[in-house]
Design a binder for these strands. Structure first.
Lengths: 211, 211
DNA sequence: CTTAATTTGTCCGTATGTATG
DNA sequence: ACATACATACGGACAAATTAA
């Protein structure tokens, strides 16, 4: 009753159960999870089994364990999984291109969405970006694109983008450089004017420059 | 020498070690890894510790373990991490709309890509679909769209789409019904003629009908 | 079909290092 | 300094599944 789900793997089931506990107890980011022994007892499994589930979640960056202190719900931005998985992915030919292309899919989609709605096309952020670029203020690429995806209000797309960004070799966390400035300004202007095609075109030329 | 990396966490270090073994022994996708006991002995750790590392890798989709049989190197393209992350995201309110929209993002991107390349725009599959629809043969929606994404040759996008499809409420596995037929035919025709805008427009109207 | 060996799945007891009060 | 709570780690034991003889 209630817990009748059939999971092929037990520890995957435990991961599910821990997720449920997090939800039921309304555990927020940074909060402490029940201890290993408590979890094991509550879920009616051995400590090793509970530990295997916890370790898996840790490698994914979902939780954070501190020796002698406890287990805590992690901020997703910890992304410990990235370094581990990136190495695996990079060893496979052709995979990196897929990652970059998929990242771009989400970026293009965000730009299209912005251009198609009055509200998102005229957010004060875009003007603010425009003037910062004009005044040669230091700006990071990923901040601009992140704002765009955030504005679309699709958190899943944002999450996927955030993940793919880490796999991308592109220097996304670097400052905007010389010849990019006018291209980004064109992009911002096109969004404000709701000219979708022009915006996407500026975007493509921007990407051609930095990669 | 060689293994002088300082890992805060032991099991992360073990994950690295296992990776090295995979590389050194030239273990290919589908091949069997050394048994847990062998690994533990080779890496000078307890079996529990080795298991925690293996389980972490399993949750990431890097390996596959079969009870009583052994541990095998998995195809990384399975990308189980997306699935795990997605489940966490889905608990947030409004997530379902995000899923549907994100799924559409990948579908639109595929259609755009198809229209922009001679090779993908003129695949025999599209003609075959067209005539099947004409002759009122039974066709499933997801088969058509899946073929489109496969044709773009972006396996990551395909994986994400496949995942999102499962969470979508849309009856994607059902047969194509009456009024959809002409819309899909328009879509297929537009792809063959490489008319991107027309194709996307047909796609939107198709989606409006079924959801 | 039976049996034995191998391997993963699970649990427990014990010992140790670390953080907190 | 001490006690408590917790994660870390090891190794043994047995169950369950698979494979091969």
């Amino acid at each position: 009753m209630g817990t009748e789900k059939k999971a092929e793997k037990r520890f995957l089931y435990i991961v599910e159960q821990i997720r449920e506990i997090i939800r039921e107890e309304n555990i927020q980011v940074g909060d402490k999870l029940p201890s290993e022994r408590t979890l094991a007892e509550r879920l009616q499994v051995g400590r090793s089994t509970a530990r295997e589930a916890l370790r898996s979640m840790e490698l994914l960056g979902l939780i954070e364990t501190r020796h002698g202190e406890g287990t805590f719900l992690a901020d997703v931005k910890k992304h410990q999984l990235v370094e581990v998985l990136a190495r695996f992915i990079l060893e496979q030919p052709g995979a990196l291109e897929d990652v970059v292309e998929t990242r771009r899919i989400h970026e293009r989609a965000a730009i299209s969405t912005l251009c198609r709605h009055e509200r998102t096309a005229h957010l004060p952020v875009w003007e603010s970006f425009y003037y910062k670029l004009d005044e040669n203020e230091s700006m990071v690429r990923e901040d601009i694109i992140r704002e765009m995806i955030i504005a679309t209000n699709n958190r899943l797309s944002l999450k996927i983008w955030f993940l793919l960004k880490q796999y991308s070799s592109a220097p996304f966390n670097e400052d905007v450089q010389g010849e990019e400035v006018p291209l980004i300004q064109q992009l911002l202007m096109a969004i404000a004017e709701m000219k979708e095609e022009e915006a996407l075109d500026s975007y493509e030329r921007w990407m051609d420059v930095i990669e």
